[in-house]
């Protein structure tokens, strides 16, 4: 079985939001040198899902793909250190500043080029722009079925079985491969890279593919091919003055709060 996992390099979502700054000229989030970029957490869980499938089957080939400039190679290395077999870096000046559509277009072309992929995994959304479009976009462009928000996934023969999160519960769905599945955080914590895998990862291959390698036109990709325009990016202010309740004891503070909620007509 060949599993392709699409991952994205983002700024660490755990970083304090006070460090976020927008460059008003470019409408981009400014990079903060004190915080290293990471693999988007849902994508890391997609890598974990692939590894669990391989653990269960005993054998599977896992290819990790990312779209980005040279520094994005780091997330491929991180995934290889977790146990993935090979990486593909989609890197070309023409790929710069993509939207969800041109990202999906490049990734689907790359998966098409890999040729024999049985299962494509992505995170449910990237933890920076939270759009959640690329996964289903890839499936549409490849014309394969997609299942979103997986909290569990298993493979039996050619059948992929997924528990998918829905409002107030979950449903179990099945599909024959090839298919795409987006992974939700309910799947659980990803494993940590072992020293052994990290050592091995240094010898695993990472291919670098350009627009030409994917048989795309530059005008179709990146910012040129994008179907949306980013008009503005900003950090809204929502700080308000908090009235802290004082008191000599927990009881006194609690009583003051209860009284204030009634005085302010909130209750």
């Amino acid at each position: 079985m060949h599993i392709a996992v699409c991952v994205k390099q983002i700024q660490d979502p755990e970083m304090p939001t006070a460090l976020l700054r927008v460059d008003a000229d470019t409408n981009k989030m400014m990079l903060t040198s004190s915080v290293s970029p990471v693999i988007s957490p849902f994508d890391e869980q997609a890598v974990e899902a692939a590894l669990r499938i391989r653990d269960a089957l005993g054998e599977a080939r896992i290819t990790v793909l990312t779209l980005g400039a040279e520094p994005a190679r780091q997330v491929l290395k991180a995934a290889l250190s977790l146990g993935a077999d090979e990486g593909v870096l989609l890197s070309d000046p023409a790929f710069q500043d993509p939207d969800s559509y041109t990202t999906a277009l490049a990734l689907s072309a790359a998966i098409g080029k890999l040729g024999d992929v049985d299962l494509v995994l992505t995170g449910r959304q990237a933890a920076d722009f939270d759009a959640g479009v690329v996964g289903c976009g890839i499936a549409e462009l490849l014309d394969i079925p997609a299942i979103t928000f997986a909290r569990d996934i298993s493979v039996d023969g050619g059948t992929i079985r997924v528990q998918r999160v829905i409002e107030n519960g979950h449903e179990i769905v099945e599909v024959a491969s090839p298919a795409l599945v987006t992974i939700s955080h309910e799947i659980g914590a990803p494993r940590k890279a072992s020293l052994r895998e990290t050592m091995r990862a240094a010898r695993k291959p990472i291919a670098v593919w350009s627009v030409e390698d994917l048989a795309l036109e530059a005008a179709q990709t990146g910012a040129l091919g994008a179907r949306r325009v980013l008009e503005a990016l900003y950090i809204p202010s929502r700080d308000i003055e908090c009235e802290f309740q004082q008191g000599a004891s927990a009881r006194e503070m609690a009583q003051n709060l209860a009284r204030r909620l009634y005085q302010a007509n909130i209750l």
Binding site: P13, T17, L20, V22, M29, A127, D128, F129, D130, A131, A226, R227, R228, V229, L230, E231, A232, L233, Y234, I235, P236
Partner: peptide, 20 residues
């Protein structure tokens, strides 16, 4: 049409328009 949505885990907002 300008559409505004949250991003960066709710810490930022973006406004998008469409070419298509």
């Amino acid at each position: 049409l300008h559409a505004t949505r949250s991003c960066y885990g709710g810490a930022a907002r973006e406004t998008l328009s469409f070419k298509t």
